[in-house]
Design a binder for these strands. Structure first.
Lengths: 279, 279
DNA sequence: CGTGCAATTGAGTTGAGTCAAGGCTAGTGG
DNA sequence: CCACTAGCCTTGACTCAACTCAATTGCACG
């Protein structure tokens, strides 16, 4: 499972052999085990470093005074968490395990040292954060402007793609150790309504979620319902060419950027209809 | 207005005089003007650099096939946008101006050069991103688990605090050049319902939003309704002491981190009731 | 002096939430 | 080995917050 993490980081940036070995060694040396429902970070606490998830599921969540407990992030094997907080301020959300969890703790000191020494690892970390951020943006849209069935469809599509990236899902199925209550917290719905909606998805022959297992029978429909476009999850791949289409040093990049420095970008006016909100 | 930006960056990290001057000069040299409703980045486009908002409002939004146009981020003077995309992949959302907008474009090349040369500026940029990320997290909670009146209350509190940070708001009022439709897109509501809810806030004597101006008559109530805790918006302040309570090099930091490297953090079990969702 | 967008208001509909009861399963302890 | 308990899932009946549809006003801009 450490290999999944390494593979994942490789997807963000091609690691030099030294960094790769160092990362692997550190993950083995600093692995920690958590049982389900354990608090790893709590809100308001100052983070001392970051965790790399090696196996199991975790989530970032919060206790609201009204009793709700929204999940703002699902952390899967290969994900990193806590890296943001250690740059900024005490955490504003807690992180807790959903299943048995294995995670490597790397202190701020270690991370700083690494990112100074290995630009590729630094880049990988940045990109890992950027990906999380893109996911966050999609969740915001999901919760803010989709119906129950659409939200679940989108979430399922996302999780399937993310789990495939670490070889934990086949084309159309995966183990998903979440309760319906977890799904509800992640989608801003009620457990009861999630239940009914799952039943509907099943009745429509689109997907089944049972016994911690998600099976998608009609991926195309699921994707269509959720309005899912996997693009936001794509990692550039380890190939530096594809990774940085405009090399920072490339002449045509500088030309284009220089042009932008003088003239505003696309001058497209937004079509008048900000009001347009047919459904 | 450039001073507001500088002041803002200073809040993230104490800039050395050289960086400060360089930043100021670049902002003046590369300022661009956009009229309202202009597209600055469009989705799918590869970003060539980042923009620093000098004056005016902008937003990050998206066109959904169902006609909705959710706003995922409000960009105020002093905010930076586009910095994430240039590290990663094409943008997944568009950014467009809401009002007349003045923004400085800084190319990827320039930014890379700066962050290599000036650690303090690099840190400031990181923290600016981290703050955006924290705001994103709060929006997710807002849209996912609050009622209409709560969402608006929270948004108003947030905007007031953010605008105060750049001296664009007094303790209880600010100019807010947003339409009710914009508020609707930002909160995941309907313009009609936003209208009614604003009327309610006004009737309750809590706040008025009229003619692009937000006036809060009862800040305490507003904050209470929105469940708003300003903590997530606090910038550490320019004081390095306060900024990094645990200096990366400090011995007690290393002790605590080392301890974590052996034992899991807090071993608090989550109270059994993940089901607890009274209202 | 239209034309278009923003704001407003009313009436009716509905998707999702609430309340409540019952079944299934797994773990615990006698 | 068998209660007993505690989550989790399931289902039905009812309620309500927010959405839809629709019509009216007022303003700003060309």
């Amino acid at each position: 499972m450490i290999d999944a993490l390494i593979q994942r980081m490789e997807n963000f940036s091609h690691l030099d052999p030294l960094s790769r070995n160092e990362l692997r060694a550190a993950c083995i040396a600093h692995a920690q085990y958590f049982s389900p429902r354990q608090v790893i970070f709590s809100a308001g606490e100052q983070a001392l470093g970051a965790y790399f998830v090696l196996s199991g599921f975790a989530c970032r969540n919060l206790h609201l005074p009204n009793g709700k407990r929204p999940i703002t992030e699902l952390l899967l094997p290969g994900d990193v968490f806590g890296a943001r907080a250690f740059l900024f301020k005490p955490n504003d959300h807690a992180v807790s395990s959903l299943t048995h969890l294995q995670a490597a703790f790397l202190s701020r000191t270690t991370l700083s040292r690494w990112s100074r020494r290995s630009p590729s690892l630094n880049e990988a970390l940045w990109r890992a954060r950027a990906l999380q951020s893109a996911i966050h943006g999609q969740w915001l849209i999901n919760v803010g402007s989709r119906t129950a069935i659409e939200r679940l469809a989108h979430l399922f599509c996302e999780l399937l793609v993310r789990l495939r990236a670490v070889s934990l899902a086949t084309q159309d199925a995966c183990t998903l150790p979440l309760t319906q209550t977890n799904l509800a917290d992640a989608t801003g719905l009620t457990p009861v309504h999630v239940n009914r909606t799952l039943a509907r998805l099943s009745r429509l022959g689109i997907s089944t979620f049972k016994d911690n297992r998600l099976i998608v029978h009609d991926p195309a429909r699921l994707q269509e319902i959720g309005g899912f476009d996997p693009e936001y999850l794509r990692t550039p791949g380890p190939d530096p060419q594809e990774c940085l289409p405009d090399s920072i040093a490339s002449p045509q990049f500088d030309d284009r950027a220089a042009a932008l420095m003088r003239h505003p970008g696309t001058l497209n006016e937004i079509p008048p209809a900000a009001t347009a909100r047919r459904t």
